[in-house]
């Protein structure tokens, strides 16, 4: 079987598929895409006052591996602090799902989505002084 059972499991029974209110202050949203294969991934996190991720949701339009990677990521994120979440590496996802080389980029996309969600939350929840700094930083970046 080319697709690992774990991938199929996430594909058939995805965990945490859905949406949260994007406008809510405690929600961080990351939207990323891979042009070569046309995969689009949205990952959202809800962070409580102590900086711990209490909920995570995803919506992915793409191949089975992309869906599985984002599904697994949301599972993994729950209960982690933002710093811990920022350390999530795509290789861990790829290893856990036993992704073949052609599908590694799906795990990279998931990692990008997590980082984008964290960044979005930080931008919304930074202290006023930090907000100004953060906004300047954002303007220089290429959007993903």
């Amino acid at each position: 079987m080319p697709y690992n059972e774990k991938v199929l499991d996430h594909f058939n029974n995805p965990r945490n598929m859905g949406s949260m209110d994007k406008a809510a202050r405690d929600v961080g949203t990351g939207i990323v895409g891979a042009p070569e294969c046309g995969d689009v991934m949205k990952l959202q996190i809800k962070v409580d006052d102590s900086g711990v991720i209490t909920e995570a949701k995803f919506k992915t339009f793409g191949c089975g591996a992309a869906i599985a990677a984002s599904s697994l990521a949301t599972e993994w994120l729950k209960g982690k602090t933002l710093d811990q979440a920022g350390e999530l590496k795509n290789t861990e996802l790829a290893h856990e799902l036993a992704l073949p080389p052609v599908k590694i980029h799906c795990s990279v996309l998931a990692e990008d989505a997590v980082k984008a969600a964290i960044e979005d939350w930080k931008r919304k929840n930074a202290a006023p002084a930090e907000t100004a700094l953060a906004t300047e930083e954002m303007q220089g970046k290429t959007k993903t």
């Binding site: 079987m1 080319p2 992704l99 073949p100 080389p101 052609v102 599908k103």
Partner: peptide
């Protein structure tokens, strides 16, 4: 055939 049984 590419690694992982996928058709490239």
């Amino acid at each position: 055939e590419t690694l992982g049984g996928a058709m490239g």
